[in-house]
Write a protein that binds this DNA or RNA. Structure first.
Lengths: 110, 110
DNA sequence: GCAGTCTATGCCAGATCCGACATAGCGCAG
DNA sequence: CTGCGCTATGTCGGATCTGGCATAGACTGC
């Protein structure tokens, strides 16, 4: 649960400090980035579950394929605002988002 | 659970359709706005629990008192990005945020 | 190899947001 | 009423984000 996350961060254009893993980020920055990654992942999963292409999703969102690609990559030019709005437009509910952000609860194991 | 929310929306500068309550907002817009309101409330509660003034919080956030006031009011010039970053800087964790967004779980009543 | 489909990256102009400052409103002690 | 601490509102320049377009890359079937 490190190398993969690191890779994600880099692909997202975060230019993470090479050797120092992402210790260069303060606690709050790290948390924020994780929120973004979680939402981005949620968006991609939702799209795939719906069996849609990025282009189709873009149409539904009133955006472009390139923007959707960046959303899913949690690129730094993408805000949580955009991710949240997009998730909601794809039918997600507040609980879905809550689960994405805080995977802790673990609704009684199963 | 309507008039008060409506008031909040109006104070937040959302110019909600007068008579039509906020039915003028689409489902996803409404959900998004509620997320914002929830985060804003969370921020205010956190500040009050810490016994700080908006000015003091502003200092911790590297911002200004006016901006903090707008954050707490979920003003339209405030993004969820800003709210999330601020919450995290005030020590909130992902679970706290998750709870704010999806108050459903209800961790066994207590 | 080439075309077709899907996804990723770079760039831009217009829109939006951020922090800051000024100032107005509010509640309260003196 | 006046002053004082705190919060709310309006505005602005500079920073950041957004959608769109162009194009590059990855993968598949032919």
């Amino acid at each position: 649960m490190r190398a993969d996350k690191r890779k994600k961060l880099e692909r997202a254009g975060w230019t993470v400090g090479d050797a120092g893993d992402f210790l260069g980020l303060s606690v709050e920055e790290r948390r924020f980035v994780e929120v973004k990654l979680a939402l981005a992942d949620g968006l991609r999963r939702r799209r795939e579950d719906l069996g849609l292409t990025q282009g189709e999703v873009a149409k539904r969102l009133g955006s472009s394929q390139s923007r959707v690609a960046k959303m899913e990559a949690a690129h730094r030019t993408v805000t949580t605002d955009l991710l949240l709005k997009s998730l909601f437009r794809l039918g997600a509910g507040p609980e879905d988002v809550g689960r994405l952000l805080a995977p802790r609860p673990r609704r009684r194991a199963a």
